[in-house]
Nucleic acid binder design. Structure first.
Lengths: 120, 120
DNA sequence: ACAGCGCATTGATGAATGTCGAATCAGGGC
DNA sequence: GCCCTGATTCGACATTCATCAATGCGCTGT
């Protein structure tokens, strides 16, 4: 039984990724590239990107799997992709009763957006 | 014909990718997901992301292949990855004499950044 | 307790990907 | 013309990946 957290955002989570100086400013090191590429890779599949956008744009910031499963692939495949997104640190999941809810990991969107920021 | 020239950015180029409503705002369609995922996928490899960052952070906005080839893989592999980035619309290349110079495709960084924009 | 539903895991398979060495192409200088 | 250097292309190989059907697990009513 894990901690039941009700705080919506901004608790000091361990898997936060502070990794990101804007790309236009400084080249990434080899190690930074590995960690950051894993996130881009997670969004680099059409089905996953669609699932992620469905969660990111969902009411209340979260979505039940049953609400986003209609993306043209089988149910196990949806589960597989959601797992990948979780492992990449992009989504978090929580079971409440019958359903499992996914939400976007806080600070991850901001970090990636910052990385691609147009400093020009 | 009002000739717009010399503007550093924002000229209406053909390969611009207008694809992008912020993710937090609206879910992507299947077709949008395919096109956009291709870009994330291109950045989803450590070597490619590093090469891209080297070009993006280079002096004058461009870099010779010879200047960014030291990323731990063979030179044909570097060329292969640069081609992938070119095909994804993220980089453009130009040969000047002996060397080939790469630069970041304008408006692509902005489009991807916009997609990940934190509307919160 | 049992049946039913939601979601995750397993195992298998065909396709895509990253990597290299060798060969090839393109320019510049001798 | 000939060679040297920079860069791309080719062929091959091992690994990873996306996908599915079948199965397992957790929870909820009845």
């Amino acid at each position: 039984m894990s901690k039941v957290e009700l705080l919506p955002v901004l608790e000091p989570d361990a898997d936060a990724v502070p990794c990101c100086p804007p790309l236009s400013e400084r080249a990434l090191t080899a190690e930074e590239s590995v960690r950051t590429a894993a996130m881009f890779k997670a969004l680099g599949d059409p089905v996953r990107l669609r699932l992620f956008s469905l969660v990111a744009s969902a009411e209340g910031g979260e979505a039940c799997v049953c609400d986003i499963s209609d993306v043209g692939v089988s149910q196990p495949t949806v589960s597989h992709h959601l797992k990948k997104l979780r492992e990449a640190g992009l989504l978090t999941s929580e079971r409440r009763g019958t359903w499992v809810y996914y939400r976007v990991a806080p600070s991850v969107l901001a970090a990636m957006g910052n990385l691609l920021a147009t400093s020009s």
